[in-house]
Simulated assay, not measured.
Amino acid sequence: MHRKVPKFVETHLDEIIERWKQLMKEDHGDRFFQIMPDEVVEKTSHEFAGLIVSNLTEDGQMYESKLHDFSERIVRLGWSITLVMKAIENFSDTVYEMLWEAEVINDSNVAEYFEVLNGWIRPLREEVVEAYSNTWERTVSLQKIALQELSASLIPVVDKVSVMPLVGTIDTERAKLIMENLLEGVVRHRSEVVLLDITGVPVVDTMVAHHIIQAADAVRLVGARCMLVGIRPEIAQTIVALGIDLNEFTTTSTLQRGMQEALALTNRQIVEVDE
């Protein structure tokens, strides 16, 4: 019985793949094939069918190695886990249906064949889910590292004036890092005015505003003044709609205007010199 399934898949592979494609089109429309070149669909389908045969004919260690490599490639192709799970289900259904049509499966042996089919489909699903999980964890970890790198230290621009450019989403963990870098930079550079540039922050909500206000309060405690620059029109509308109080801030729309304000606060100004 275990030999009949891989033999059947090998013999009827082209028909299985065509019927599987039709099922995928019925579930997802032509969009499923528009996002993937035909050669990728064909190659992946044959690899998947080969896994079925390997599971039923090769030793466990060799099969697990092939299964892991296949799952990793599927993830790298960028297919969603929902799409992959549906593709596996439809492939299994197609093989099962054709086995019935060929009378390989009948009422007397259906339970046994169901166990055989389930035996190769279950580990494939589990391995794909694990591959996606591992990839997701690596991605999140790399994103956290990238965000930490973007949380640059305070940059001294001119004497007594420093800038901290903020880029990306600000969560609680990153806000803590920003606060530490900000306070260390103020003390180290003896800054009197600090410009927090939020030009690169995509969304300013209540939580982000709270973190910014906390940072400004901390800066005041070490004897410096904090300015908020880079406020885009949509950010200004959000701040007003949320009722966030930034009255204690000096705010400007651009870093350039912020520098002019900062220089004024330190009794300096930018002047044009005739050549």
Rank of each mutant, 00 (worst) to 15 (best):
D27W: 10
R122H: 13
E184A: 09
E58S: 14
S92T: 13
L195K: 12
I178Q: 01
T82K: 05
T252E: 07
Q214Y: 12
V186Y: 01
R76T: 00
T254Q: 11
D107N: 11
E184I: 10
M259R: 03
E115T: 11
W120L: 04
E18V: 14
V208A: 08
T172Q: 12
S253D: 08
N106A: 02
L265G: 01
A102L: 13
A218M: 07
G29E: 11
D205C: 12
V129D: 02
L263N: 00
R268E: 15
K176L: 07
E64L: 15
V157R: 09
G230Y: 05
M164Y: 05
T94G: 06
E18L: 15
E89P: 08
D107M: 13
L124I: 06
V271G: 09
E261I: 08
V194R: 06
A131F: 00
V229H: 01
N267P: 14
I212E: 03
Q214H: 14
L221F: 14
S141C: 08
D38L: 09
I270W: 15
R232P: 08
L255D: 05
R19M: 15
E137Y: 07
E26W: 07
E184T: 11
I35M: 09
S80W: 00
N118M: 04
P165K: 08
S65C: 11
S191G: 13
Q256L: 10
M98H: 10
L150I: 06
W100I: 12
R3G: 07
Q148Y: 09
A215R: 01
E192C: 05
Q256M: 10
E130F: 02
I155E: 01
L142I: 02
V116W: 04
F70L: 02
T44E: 04
V167G: 03
V104H: 03
A262Q: 10
V219D: 10
T44S: 05
V53N: 06
H68Y: 13
T11D: 15
M36V: 01
Q22P: 04
K144R: 15
V41C: 02
D217R: 14
K144T: 15
V84M: 00
E149Q: 07
G119T: 10
E47S: 02
Q22M: 14
S92P: 13
D69Q: 10
F8G: 05
Q34G: 01
Y96R: 09
L183I: 15
R232D: 04
H210L: 11
E39K: 03
R31H: 11
P37G: 06
L124Y: 01
G230T: 08
E184V: 10
T44G: 03
I244H: 05
R220S: 11
A152Q: 08
A236R: 02
V84Y: 00
D30G: 08
L177W: 06
E26V: 03
A111T: 15
M98R: 06
E89S: 08
R190C: 13
H189R: 12
E184L: 08
A241P: 15
T250Y: 03
